[in-house]
């Protein structure tokens, strides 16, 4: 099993470690709920060293990104980050990822942890590109929360805008920082060498920032309505069905474009919808869903720590409208709720 550069610190902090895509990572330090609320109310930091990441360079890099990803870097410029997806020819989501466009000719690609080998291999096949793995050689820390930007300024002496990237030296090591995250809160994610990462983590702890595990990261991203690849997205679902059309640019050629154009023009048979339960119970992955229009299954669900009620996402065919009533079957009992547009909690 792979281990983070912060492993010893995580153990020292009493983290409960579990397997995340072949990485032994903290699921919680003390309490998922308390860690969740720390991020919603003040700030927390996460060891996310398991996340995929590799550098992409070479004269063919821009073309490879344009061909292999459905969003378009022409929409942004160096020093910015963009959410995008790699699709199959049938429009299915092979991976959803973030690209950090650091300088004119250097891009860092951040796939999901489990998809790193596959995504990196797809880029490596392209002419005129080199790929360099960063997952095994660096550490990654996310700092998130309404006080996240202030924490970053106090500890790292930097400010970074939403979806902007920065490179600087700190504590004797190189740090790459982006104004990104997976919680619905402001803040950023940084990549650095293992030694500097330990110094950053120690500085965050000294500053009173709570270490948070991947359990809270999951409830936070769900409350923020952010899909998780492998649950809400996979190769059988398209970005259009998942409501991720904002990250598809039809003004360039990319793998899967024809399939998405057909779907865009013909209409959707099903769609990923958000729901909130009014009745008691916790919706979970795979639980059946019914509405007056269509039926489906929960892809992600949990108790929302902020709303203190069950929330989730489900593919429903044919898709209902926001405001429609909906029921989720929880252990043989249909629990009432309604279709809402995520995020479930707005900061």
């Amino acid at each position: 099993m792979n281990r983070s550069s912060l492993h010893d610190l995580n153990v020292e902090l009493g983290a409960r470690l579990i397997d995340f895509g072949g990485w032994e990572m903290p699921v919680q330090y003390e309490s998922v709920l308390e860690e969740h609320k720390a991020v919603r109310n003040s700030a927390g930091f996460f060891d996310v060293s398991h996340l995929g990441r590799f550098a992409l360079r070479g004269e063919g890099a821009a073309e490879a990104l344009s061909r292999l990803l459905c969003n378009n870097l022409d929409r942004i410029e160096p020093g910015r980050a963009q959410y995008s997806m790699m699709l199959g020819e049938d429009g299915g989501v092979v991976d959803d990822l973030i690209v950090w466009w650091l300088t004119d000719d250097e891009y860092w690609v951040m796939p999901n942890a489990v998809n790193q080998p596959r995504v990196m291999a797809a880029f490596a096949e392209h002419d005129g590109v080199t790929t360099t793995d960063l997952q095994s050689t660096t550490a990654m820390i996310a700092i998130q929360g309404p006080e996240g930007p202030d924490v970053i300024e106090d500890v790292l002496e930097q400010r970074v805008g939403r979806f902007r990237t920065k490179h600087f030296q700190w504590g004797g090591g190189p740090v790459w920082l982006a104004g990104t995250g997976y919680t619905g809160e402001p803040g950023g994610e940084l990549i650095t060498d293992p030694k500097t990462a330990r110094t950053v983590a120690a500085a965050l702890l000294r500053h009173g920032v709570r270490p948070c595990g991947l359990g809270a990261r999951d409830t936070l991203r769900l409350e923020a309505g952010l899909p998780l690849w492998g649950q809400d997205l996979d190769e059988t679902t398209t970005p259009i069905e998942a409501g991720l059309g904002f990250a598809v640019d039809f003004d360039h050629d990319f793998v899967g474009k024809d399939a998405l154009e057909r779907q865009r023009d013909d209409g959707l048979e099903r769609r990923l919808i958000g729901f909130v339960l009014e009745g008691r119970g916790v919706p979970r992955h795979d639980y059946p869903v019914r509405t007056e229009r269509g039926t489906g299954k929960v892809t992600s669900g949990n108790m929302s720590p902020m709303l203190e009620t069950g929330v989730g996402m489900a593919y429903v065919a044919p898709p209902p409208e926001v405001g429609d009533s909906l029921e989720v079957e929880i252990r043989g009992r249909w629990v009432a709720g309604s279709v809402v547009k995520p995020p479930f909690h707005r900061s």
Binding site: Q28, S31, V32, E34, G215, G281, V282, N302
Partner: peptide, 8 residues
């Protein structure tokens, strides 16, 4: 189990 959020 961790933080218990629901008991049926």
């Amino acid at each position: 189990l961790g933080d218990i959020v629901y008991v049926e």
